[in-house]
Nucleic acid binder design. Structure first.
Length: 217
DNA sequence: TTGTGTTTTACGACCTCC
DNA sequence: GGAGGTCGTAAAACACAA
C-alpha cells in the first residue's frame, strides 16, 4: 500500500491522541486501499479539544456503523451518557458519535418524508382515477336522461295528436289519467313519479325508447 | 482513467429547552 | 448560558458510466 504523507501524519497523530479519531489509521483486516482520486489537502479539522489539526475525514468502519445503527434503532435521541458510552465502545470521539446521530436523524427524516410523499401521491392518483370514472358515468347518465326526455316529448306529441283526432281517446285519457303507466300505479299527486323510469327489476335500466315500446306497440 | 453524481462525515449558524 | 437539536453546506469517499 502506498502511504501518503497525510496517512503517515495521521498515523502519528493517532498515536498521540489514541482516543480521538482512532479510525484514522485503517485497522488490520479491514484495509481498504484508497483507490479514488487524490483529495485536495484541505482537511484542517478541529479536534475534540478545539485544537486545529490536519485531520482528514475518514469513513467509520462497518462495525462502528452497525453498532451506531443498532443504537439508533433503539432510540433516535442521544443522551450524553449513551453518547460517551458508545464513543468509548467504538473508539470514537463523542463529538463523532453526536455528529453521526445528527446526520442519521436527517437521513431518517428524509426517508420518512419521501415515504409520506409517495403515499400521498398514490392516494392522489387513485382519487384522480376515481374522479374520471365518475365524470364519465355522469356523462353517460346525462345522455340517458336526454334520450328519455326526448322520448317523453315525442309521446306527448303523439298523445296530443291522438286526442285532437279522436274524441274517444281524449275521453279515455281523461278518465284513466294514467294512460301509459298502467300497472305502475303513478298516483295523481305524482308521489310515484320517482319510479317512473325504473319499472323493471333493479339495476336493469331500460332507456326511454325501449320502455315506451313496451306500451305503445 | 476520468468525469460526474451520490453518500457520508463534519462543521457553523441558529434555535429551543432547562 | 450550556447542551443538544435542526438545517444548510463543504468536502472526502465512493460508485459507475463513458
Amino acid at each position: 500500500m502506498n502511504h501518503t504523507v497525510d496517512d503517515q501524519n495521521m498515523a502519528f497523530i493517532s498515536q498521540l491522541y489514541p482516543d480521538v479519531y482512532t479510525q484514522i489509521v485503517p485497522q488490520q483486516g479491514e484495509v481498504k486501499p484508497p483507490k479514488r482520486r487524490k483529495k485536495k489537502n484541505k482537511g484542517a479539522v478541529t479536534a475534540g479539544d478545539g485544537s486545529s489539526c490536519l485531520f482528514r475525514k475518514r469513513k467509520l468502519t462497518d462495525e462502528q456503523v452497525n453498532m451506531l445503527e443498532m443504537s439508533f434503532g433503539d432510540e433516535h435521541k442521544l443522551e450524553s451518557e449513551r453518547k460517551d458510552r458508545l464513543a468509548a465502545e467504538l473508539g470514537l470521539d463523542p463529538r463523532q458519535v453526536a455528529v453521526w446521530f445528527q446526520n442519521r436523524r436527517a437521513r431518517w427524516k428524509n426517508k420518512r418524508l419521501e415515504e409520506e410523499y409517495n403515499k400521498l401521491k398514490n392516494s392522489h392518483d387513485n382519487v384522480v382515477v376515481d374522479k374520471r370514472r365518475l365524470e364519465s358515468e355522469v356523462l353517460q347518465l346525462k345522455e340517458q336522461l336526454y334520450d328519455a326526455e326526448r322520448e317523453i316529448q315525442r309521446l306527448a306529441e303523439r298523445v296530443e295528436r291522438g286526442s285532437s283526432n279522436s274524441p274517444i281517446s281524449s275521453v279515455s285519457v281523461e278518465v284513466n289519467e294514467t294512460p301509459f303507466f298502467g300497472d305502475y300505479n303513478v298516483g295523481k299527486d305524482g308521489d310515484d313519479y320517482d319510479n317512473l323510469f325504473y319499472p323493471v327489476p333493479e339495476n336493469s335500466y331500460i332507456d326511454g325508447a325501449e320502455w315506451m315500446n313496451l306500451y305503445i306497440s
